[in-house]
Amino acid sequence: MARVAFVTGGTRGIGRCIVERLKADGFKVAAGYSGNEEAAQACANQLNVMPVKGNVSVFEDCRRAVELVEKELGPIDVLVNNAGITRDGVFHKMSSEQWGEVVRVNMDSLFNMTRQVIEGMRERGYGRIVNISSINGLKGQVGQTNYSAAKAGMIGFTKALALENAKKGVTVNAIAPGYVDTEMVQAVPENVLQAIIAQIPVGRLARGEEIADIVSYLAGERAGYVTGATLSINGGQHM
């Protein structure tokens, strides 16, 4: 029987690449989204996956989303916590709204989503949780104290949860991508984008498929001995 995967923020960018790869791997896949109906419908139609609308920063939304997925597809075996936002600004000018929104969507969502599935995974003796962090959670970034703090917190969450669930057949890992060739990055002014690429030793942006390849491995049954790890995919930009 095909296993079930739920990818938050799964209808665009890196998330969509992950959804496409897991679907190709034979999973039954649910793709979470918060607002872009057009992108969600396109993802659902083109990849034949289940779109699930909800706000990952709201616990009850996450509870309802998981209930819908489990009713339609079955118990969730793989959770990819990918949803995230940026609200950039230097800290001495940052508003509480900029700070709070990023922490809620990028960090609180880990509790909101994972809490819904962890007991079932433990009871069944199998689960894969993959958290999409960031290079900036490892090295920091000017204008992103909120984002860097949340993404660094994700790594601590990963390690602690991995320890708690290792004996239950549930692995918990993080991926820390560098700059990826998504619509969001391509919208950066050309001169800024070229300056970013100049700092990457391999001389290019990552492709979404390269991130999805790592998720595919961590989500699979062969990755049972990998837990508590943070895998950097940044072209050598930060080591």
Rank of each mutant, 00 (worst) to 15 (best):
Q41R: 14
E164K: 13
V172H: 13
E101V: 02
L161K: 03
R63E: 14
E38P: 03
G137W: 02
A83R: 01
V56A: 06
T145Y: 00
Y147I: 00
V188Y: 12
L218T: 12
D61V: 09
R124A: 15
V52Q: 02
L193F: 08
S134H: 00
D213G: 12
E60L: 10
G203V: 05
E67S: 05
F157Q: 01
I129K: 03
I132A: 09
V185E: 08
Y126L: 14
G156P: 03
G153V: 02
V49N: 07
S34A: 10
D61S: 14
V58G: 01
R124V: 09
V170N: 12
A150Y: 00
G89F: 00
T86Q: 11
R12F: 03
M107W: 00
A206V: 09
G153H: 03
P201N: 03
K53E: 06
G143C: 10
G32R: 02
L79K: 04
N131P: 14
V103L: 13
V52N: 01
S148C: 11
L68C: 10
F91T: 08
N131Q: 10
K71R: 12
H92C: 07
V90R: 07
G169N: 08
D108Y: 02
Q98P: 04
F157A: 01
N112V: 09
Q237F: 06
T171E: 06
S232I: 14
A150K: 01
N131D: 11
P75I: 06
Q41C: 08
A219Q: 04
T86D: 03
G156Q: 09
M184P: 03
A65T: 01
G9V: 10
N106K: 05
A160D: 07
Y179K: 03
G74F: 08
L205P: 03
R16C: 05
A2Y: 10
D213N: 15
Q194H: 12
A83Q: 05
V69N: 04
E164A: 14
P177D: 04
N48A: 15
G35I: 07
G100F: 04
